[in-house]
């Protein structure tokens, strides 16, 4: 009887473990970032560069970013105060601090508590994930720089950075 119980427990745990594996990234705690939407974020934050998912940086980074739009990576990206504040609220609400997907958590954990990086590519999470990519690859015409996630991660704007879907262009 006791053996039979142990067997059932074993079967149950195998089943739930494989269900968890099969569910891939979409589940709570998976690595897929949640689907988020805000019309102003979409329009304003993708006119010069790809649309970065708010789950890629912690709240303090977004606040710093949005407070310095007049000098945004060397360019003037100023917004009227109403638009700026709405986008800031949206970014904060969906930031890596507020997200429970695995990738956001790891990005957040890789950033020292006293740092508020503006470049995702400067986080330890990013550099360790891309340590096999040479600087020359990032500089390819088809890629441009490490900021252009979407060149290799087609689902980047949807918060999908799944390694199995990476295609590095020539």
């Amino acid at each position: 009887m006791k053996n039979w119980m142990q067997f059932m427990v074993l079967i149950a745990s195998i089943t739930s473990a494989s269900a968890l594996l099969a569910s891939g990234g979409t589940e709570r705690g998976g690595s897929q970032m949640p689907s988020v939407n805000n019309a102003k974020w979409k329009a304003e934050c993708s006119s010069c560069h790809m649309l970065y998912h708010p789950g890629l940086l912690p709240e303090r980074s977004w606040n710093k970013m949005m407070a310095g739009l007049d000098k945004h990576f060397g360019e003037n990206a100023s917004l009227d105060p109403m638009t700026r504040d709405e986008i800031t609220r949206f970014l904060v609400l969906n930031s890596a601090d507020k997200s429970d997907n695995r990738r956001s958590s790891r990005i957040k954990q890789s950033i020292p508590a006293n740092a508020a990086p503006l470049r995702i590519s400067e986080t330890r999470y990013f550099t360790s994930k891309h340590d096999e990519i040479s600087p020359a690859t990032f500089k390819r015409k088809s890629i441009g720089s490490a900021a252009n996630c979407i060149a290799c991660h087609q689902g980047a704007e949807k918060g999908n950075f799944s390694e199995s879907q990476v295609k590095i262009p020539r």
Binding site: H49, F73, E75, A151
Partner: peptide, 8 residues
């Protein structure tokens, strides 16, 4: 078509 510094 033009291109931004961030490749867009």
């Amino acid at each position: 078509q033009g291109k931004t510094r961030a490749n867009k």
